[in-house]
Simulated scan of single mutants.
Amino acid sequence: MNQTTSDDRITREDGESGGRWVYRADDAEAEMTYSRLRTAKIIVDHTGVPDAFRGQGVGLALAERMVADMRSEGMRVIALCPFVKAQAQRHPDWADVIE
């Protein structure tokens, strides 16, 4: 993770049909949203990073947290989000999580 981001600033909001990972700092927030597909599968559909966080590794930090959470829960991910798709191609070690 980039040194300007901190994993303790990322929280997960999990609901029955989906949720999001959120990075908050300086009255701004970035998010990665998902929908539940099945008990053991989610669809990550959007990553939004405001200009205030651009170039700080916040999007990657959200993706890393998502992969870590899904790996620990034995979940699989379908990446509809173009950012997550691109990161999955750069991180072949995520193949156990991202389809």
Rank of each mutant, 00 (worst) to 15 (best):
A95R: 14
S6F: 04
D27T: 09
G74A: 05
V67Q: 09
I43P: 01
V49D: 11
A68S: 14
H46Y: 03
V58A: 10
A61W: 10
G48Q: 14
T47I: 00
I10W: 00
E64W: 14
A88Y: 15
T39P: 04
T4F: 08
V22N: 06
V44P: 05
H46K: 10
R90G: 01
L60S: 13
N2E: 15
L62K: 12
R54H: 14
E13D: 08
G15D: 03
M75S: 12
R65N: 07
G19H: 04
M32E: 07
M32A: 07
P50I: 00
R71T: 06
R76A: 09
A63M: 06
L62E: 13
A95G: 10
D69S: 07
A30P: 03
Q56V: 00
L37Y: 01
F53A: 03
R20H: 00
Y34L: 00
Q56W: 01
D45W: 05
R54Q: 02
I10E: 00
D93A: 15
M32H: 07
A86E: 10
V58K: 02
T5W: 03
D96L: 04
D93Q: 15
W94T: 12
E29H: 03
G59M: 15
G15N: 02
S17M: 12
I10Y: 00
F53C: 08
Q87M: 15
T4G: 01
C81R: 05
K85A: 08
T33V: 08
G74Y: 13
M75Q: 15
R65M: 07
W94C: 15
A28T: 04
A28H: 14
E31K: 02
D14K: 05
V84F: 15
R54G: 10
E13I: 04
